[in-house]
Amino acid sequence: MNYKNKMISVLYAVVIAVCGLGIAGQAAAGSGVSEVRPLLLAAADVSSANIFNRNLKKPKKHNPPPPEDGIHDTSNEATFSLQAPLEAYKGLPKTTFGNRVDWVKAIDQGLIKPRWDRLDSNEEPFVMDLDIVRPVKASVPDVVFPHRQHTEWLFCSNCHPAIFIPQKGANQINMSAILLGKKCGVCHGKVSFPIETKTCKKCHSKPKPKDWKPPLSEATLKNPWK
């Protein structure tokens, strides 16, 4: 009896081995995909309701080529011969706002060499390295305005005196004016980096001293019941 049982188990083993070999052979022959496919199907069957941020806005596609950007006419043949932004941005430092290119870094690292003169490629810009600190009444960090990055691109007469009077304390600037396209907003929010929560710290970059306290309003100071 024992011997018979052993024989049967050996027979089973042989059958299983042969089956295994057969499957392995099939897999080796390339038809093994049928073994993997059920796994993939199972993954695809899982509900898409389980993803993160399901109800949030879909991420926008950035830097679309001209025919897909919504302002170029696709019935115009030349639209298709215009360069796509991403083609030009290859290799340039990235950001997460505006054109998604860090233009200042690109120029500092010599990755782009825009002309300072219409015709002469060798003319150097008139760069002035002077930081202006503007104290801010509110608790946000003070503003540091760097002339260097600006004079890399612009000429003095672009800003002075029409937009900013070149005199200490002569310019009243506030965020509402900037958001409405005045003062810094003449460029920032249109061409240069936009005013977004991601970019606050680019200007508001000098932290307040540790003992800083918000200034008390006149009404508070005059309050007889204080």
């Binding site: 825009p114 002309r115 219409r118 691109w153 612009l154 003449v186």
Partner: peptide, 25 residues
């Protein structure tokens, strides 16, 4: 007409058009 700023700023600094050529902001 559509003017692409990004294409032009790779080739020219703001100064060329906005100071020399007189384009207003």
């Amino acid at each position: 007409a559509v003017f692409p700023h990004w294409f032009h700023r790779i080739r020219f600094r703001c100064k060329v058009c906005h100071a020399d050529l007189g384009f207003k902001f």
